[in-house]
């Protein structure tokens, strides 16, 4: 199915409700409560996906959760999933070791409009673990940097200890052709960097308001203020993309849990052009 902002990969399996066996190749600790699992298919098959898509990960006997893919499609090796242990299933996934098996359904959902942004400036705004779903898009942008105009990456974490992919952010910041800013909400320990909400950095500009594409992922309140700041800068809603989070059980539009207005976030999202959901976004508890 072609979507206005990317291509939805064909379902990798005949029955979308049945998990495929994948094996954990590597487990990397990211933060106190956050880890990354590198997975590879254990059934000999391949795995094609787009940046911004997600998988349903199953921990044997415990349950299943949606996790966005945090590696880029052309990144060699395993498929990465960066997970914050906040519930029963994410904790069970966190207890697994290299060599252990997980079930995978996916990939599901829409993707970041990386190709559609060729020739445009890019504003990438991430909050907290929202950097994980954006990482594949950022990797793709860096890999073909000449195809874009100015690239602004703005990242906010709660505290310096919560900065995800710290080394990678530092390396991106070392690129002369990337404008990377990191801020924290609250200072702990020795921090000489920026303090304040990440959405405040949008006003610094560094992008052409008429020819920019903005990609946003983070808490809904961050995206709300982020969109407002982008609007204030003159970026139109149809050039802003947000990744929504809702409860997902089936990921194929059958279970109804992820509905947001008429959209099923699992298959019509999670990445939406903002103009498509703008009227609903401001309504509480929709």
């Amino acid at each position: 199915m072609m979507t206005p902002h990317g291509t939805m990969a064909a379902p990798a399996q005949l029955d979308p409700m049945t998990p495929r066996p994948f094996r954990i190749r590597q487990r990397r600790k990211e933060l106190a409560d956050t880890f990354t699992l590198a997975l590879a298919p254990d059934d000999g098959g391949g795995f094609a996906f787009q940046p911004g898509q997600f998988n349903m990960l199953y921990a044997f006997g415990v349950g299943e959760i949606p996790v966005s893919i945090s590696s880029a499609p052309d990144e060699p090796g395993e498929i990465l999933h960066t997970i914050r242990a906040v519930g029963k299933v994410s904790a069970a996934l966190g207890a697994l070791k290299p060599g252990d098996m997980v079930g995978v359904r996916g990939p599901f959902g829409t993707s970041w409009p990386v190709e559609a942004a060729y020739g445009s400036d890019l504003v990438i705004l991430a909050g907290g673990i929202g950097l994980a779903p954006l990482r594949p898009a950022i990797r793709q942008v860096i890999a073909q940097r000449e195809k874009f105009g100015n690239v602004v990456i703005l990242y906010g974490a709660r505290t310096p200890e919560d900065i995800l992919f710290r080394k990678e952010l530092q390396s991106w910041r070392g690129h002369f052709d990337l404008n990377v800013e990191v801020t924290v909400d609250r200072v702990t320990g020795a921090w000489g960097g920026r303090v304040g909400v990440v959405t405040g950095l949008i006003r610094q500009g560094g992008f052409d308001r008429l020819h920019s594409i903005a990609l946003l992922c983070g808490p809904e309140v961050m995206m709300r203020y982020g969109v407002r700041a982008l609007h204030d800068c003159g970026v139109a809603s149809e050039r802003i993309y947000v990744s929504m989070e809702r409860n997902m059980k089936c990921a194929v539009g059958f279970c109804g849990h992820c509905q947001f207005g008429a959209s099923f976030v699992c298959k019509d999202g999670p990445v939406f052009p903002f103009d498509r959901i703008e009227k609903l976004f401001a309504i509480p508890e929709l």
Binding site: M17, G61, E64, C250
Partner: peptide, 26 residues
């Protein structure tokens, strides 16, 4: 109305797991 949830269950041995899909409600 078609909404459903899933329940993942195991037996006492922990070696046998099942996924059940059950009617759910908004």
């Amino acid at each position: 109305c078609f909404c459903s949830t899933v329940e993942d269950v195991t037996d006492l041995s922990g070696d046998h797991a099942e996924r059940w899909r059950k009617w759910d409600s908004c």
